[in-house]
Design a protein around this nucleic acid. Structure first.
Lengths: 237, 237
DNA sequence: CGAAGCATTGATCGTCGTCAAACAATGTGG
DNA sequence: CCACATTGTTTGACGACGATCAATGCTTCG
């Protein structure tokens, strides 16, 4: 999974070796558990090895906003390498295998392999790009478009880590979690999804998503994958 | 203005010199002009020397969403150093003095001065943090809170670059621009502002903002400046 | 003085929130 | 194996926040 990095540029043997032998503490975490919390001053970052997680923040009123979904291969709190105190929490959505890597070893890696450091920087920039797109999505798109857009993003990102077969994939995200990601209520998400099903845009039941007509969904979500800055452009598929 | 960097750590003479002699092409740009556009593949980044700018994206429907305000000292497209194609546009809000620095010289700077590279990385991480907060703001806060929050952010960031006297500052942002930043319409922004004025939360007329009761505004906006990751905590003031 | 841009106001409409309940699926323990 | 607890989905009625449409002021500036 770490080989997401490899898609950006070809690693030297040296670099690959450094990554493969990266010391990390692997932990299995149940669904719906905080991995790190806003306000923490972590001394390590976490790499999602399997499962779905999310980055979120809370208002003073106790409302939750998910600002990003974290998929296998992501390091959602890589930022903590430079920013001492975390300004968001990270929670699992499904059960996850998480690898914890100390900042010390990450620093070491960056100093020894400048190109890996650059790749890490790049990763955080793509995260930022995704946040920007989400501001647009939440601020200016409504109902079906908004939902369609995150679905498109999820599918494209899942495809990039090889978790989409054909036009279907596992999607262990509840309607309540979608609501927190979209700035909606659960009730509204439910109604939007029903309308999308009725219009044949998606087939979604349980943990399984199927996309009968990718082009139409893309169009509904005004989805242009440029902002994900993927190298191989899997978006066409 | 570049000395925003200096607030993070003390520069060596060498580093300071490198920054002060940084070759850049300075240009004065009128209000409401695009500096760079989504889709561009820029070979240089822009440093805001004076004036207000903003980063924005558009929906296919032609609706605009501002995802960030750019203040003097910011380098809003530093990301283009690593991401070839821009996924957002940048426009001036007021007249701006902008310094263009080629990627070449930036790379050179980063290689020669790793601590400056780290500081740049850090800057982009703070940008990301601001985007996250905006997702929360746009997704989960309404009316007055939403408005109060961006006002708080603006004041704190302006104070960090010494553009706030007492409790007042220049704020050349139109209601239409606020609307695009908040995901509202101009009409609604107008009504929210009037209510805030009526409640004595702000005094805003023309380009001038005055904050009679900072604590109350902070409270209304649920504003906690942690996410800005400022070193000296000017937030108390 | 007229034009352009911005702020303001009013009336009406719609997306989405709130509240409340019922239903389905899953899993646990007696 | 069934009771029942838990979690997620679905439905309905109603209300509100904010959008839309359309004028009307108010500045500023050439």
């Amino acid at each position: 999974m770490i080989r997401k990095l490899e898609s950006v540029f070809t690693l030297t043997d040296d670099e690959r070796q450094a990554l493969e032998t990266l010391p990390m503490q692997v932990q299995v975490i149940k669904a719906d558990q905080d991995v790190v919390r806003e306000g923490d001053r972590p001394s390590r970052s976490c790499l999602i090895l399997s499962g779905f997680a999310c980055t979120y923040k809370m208002t003073a009123q106790g409302k939750r906003q998910i600002v990003s979904f974290n998929l296998p291969g992501d390091i959602p709190d890589l930022q903590s390498l430079h920013l001492k105190v975390l300004d968001n929490s990270i929670s699992t959505i499904s059960q996850c295998r998480v690898g914890f890597i100390t900042h010390e070893t990450l620093w070491d890696l960056c100093i020894r392999h400048p190109r890996i450091a650059a790749a890490f920087w790049r990763e955080t920039l793509i995260d930022a790009s995704i946040f920007r797109e989400w501001v647009l999505n939440v601020g200016r798109r409504e109902g079906i478009s908004r939902m369609a857009h995150v679905l498109c993003e999820l599918v494209v990102r899942l495809r990039a880590v090889d978790l989409v077969e054909d036009h279907a994939c596992d999607l262990p995200i509840t309607q309540g979690e979608f609501a927190d990601a979209l700035g909606f209520t659960t009730v509204h998400v439910n109604r939007v999804l029903q309308q999308m099903r009725a219009e044949g845009l998606i087939e979604l039941s349980g943990d399984r998503l199927n996309i009968p007509d990718w082009d139409r969904l893309k169009q509904m979500g005004e989805f242009d994958p440029t902002y994900l800055h993927l190298e191989s452009d899997q978006a066409a598929a």
